[in-house]
Amino acid sequence: MTAVDPDDDTDLVLYARVPDDGEGKRLDAVCAQLFADYSRSRLQAFIEAGRLQVDGEVVTRCRSAVRAGAQLRLLAEEIEQELRLEPQDLPIDVVHADRDLAVIDKPAGLTVHPGAGQRDGTLQNALLHHFPQTATLPRAGIVHRLDKDTSGLMVVALNLKAHAHLVAALQAREIRREYEALVQGELISGATIDLPIGRHPRDRLRMAVVEHGGRDAVTHYRIGERFTLFTRLDVRLETGRTHQIRVHLAHLRHPIVGDPLYGGPLRCGGLPIELREALQGMRRQALHARELALAHPRSGEQVSWHRPAPADMQRLYALLRRHAPHGGQ
Rank of each mutant, 00 (worst) to 15 (best):
M1I: 06
V4L: 15
P6I: 01
D8C: 08
D21F: 12
F35E: 03
D37L: 13
L43S: 07
A45W: 04
I47D: 02
V54D: 09
V59K: 11
A68S: 15
A68W: 02
A70L: 07
R73H: 06
L83E: 12
L85P: 03
E86M: 13
P87W: 07
D100R: 07
D100V: 04
V103K: 07
I104C: 00
I104Q: 00
I104W: 00
G109W: 01
T111K: 10
D120V: 00
T122Y: 00
N125F: 04
H130W: 14
P132S: 11
T136S: 12
R139S: 07
I142A: 08
R145I: 07
G152D: 00
M154R: 07
V156C: 01
L160N: 13
K161Y: 01
Q171A: 15
E174P: 08
E180Q: 15
Q184K: 10
T192Y: 03
G198Y: 09
P201F: 05
R202I: 07
G214I: 06
G214K: 04
T219V: 02
H220W: 12
R222S: 13
G224Y: 13
E225C: 15
R226E: 00
F230E: 05
D234E: 12
D234W: 13
Q244L: 06
L249A: 03
H251W: 15
L261S: 14
Y262I: 01
L266Y: 02
A278P: 11
L287Y: 09
A289K: 02
R290D: 13
L292P: 05
Q302T: 12
V303F: 10
A309P: 12
D312I: 00
M313P: 00
Q314A: 10
L316N: 07
